[in-house]
Design a protein around this nucleic acid. Structure first.
Lengths: 152, 152
DNA sequence: ATAGTCCTTAGAGGGGACTCTAAGTCAATA
DNA sequence: TATTGACTTAGAGTCCCCTCTAAGGACTAT
């Protein structure tokens, strides 16, 4: 299957502006053109776009993604570099999850505090910073409950 | 205890530039001055800064944080708003964790693919997109192992 | 007493990632 | 045939969040 930029924009959630911007930034050198100079995307391109999207979501700068794509273009000689990149990105994502869990904990504590404050009618009546930490198990139980709810 | 802006910068990891920028943006109207006009932070201020940092980490725009701080300044009449804000932010953080777990899964899959490719010497020899999804339990086991390693 | 360090202010500069405008081409439809 | 709509390009503008500069004042150590 072949797709125009507009179709790809709808399918990926990236605007056509963004898709052209990505091309200019060297992220999508693989996209071909038709005989009128218009971009045509195929299914492999969509897969790679999805991967680019994933990497961007994990906080990787466009420049690093560009590097990765150019390694892909360069062929099998760059397999080790690509593996190393993903291994590093794995650490980054794990770190993000770690921080998000800590943030969730703080936010949950605040919800608890404010619920009691609303009930009491005043913030002064509740202990606002006795941050009774949840255990790792309790945190994981929260994540698990959430995932169950989402059928992840 | 009282602290100068430089001390606070070291303690919080926010630069003194950033601390002044936050004040200009209305995030820290609570910070007092000494008789030379220099900012002096107390321990409550550090607590609030830590909270601001947490909210920012969860992706909240500075403008929304400013709103929250002004609710705090306004007193008990705004408790419900603050509770609602944290409840909404809880959903945001849970969503972030959800996405991070999916990203971790994709990255892990890529690591697997590239490890096999490196072993085989070519990308062409391995199935690159049979994304054999991990179960939620396996994902959680990963998070748990990571947390155990970090003594969270 | 002189350098160094810290602070103040207003305002300019920068980076990342878009987001859009303007002017033009092309193909299909009423 | 005329218009609509999707596409092209280069380049300007925007948004968020800093990050720094310049010019100057005050304290601290040598």
């Amino acid at each position: 299957m072949l797709y125009s930029i507009g179709t790809v924009a709808k399918k990926t959630g990236l605007s056509s502006y963004t898709l052209r911007y990505y091309e200019k930034a060297g992220l999508t050198p693989f996209v071909k053109r038709d005989d009128h100079g218009r971009r045509i995307f195929n299914d492999d391109d969509l897969d790679l776009l999805a991967l680019i999207r994933c990497l961007k979501q994990t906080g990787m700068p466009l420049e690093d993604i560009r590097q990765f794509v150019s390694w892909c273009q360069a062929g099998d000689g760059t397999l080790a570099e690509r593996l190393a990149m993903f291994q590093q990105q794995k650490l980054a994502v794990e770190q993000q999850i770690h921080e998000s869990l800590l943030n969730l904990q703080k936010v949950n504590h605040k919800i608890d505090v404010y619920q009691r404050a609303v009930a009491a009618g005043s913030e002064g009546l509740v202990d606002c910073d006795s941050l009774s930490q949840l255990s790792a198990d309790e945190l994981l139980a929260q994540v698990k409950a959430y995932e169950a709810a989402q059928k992840l």
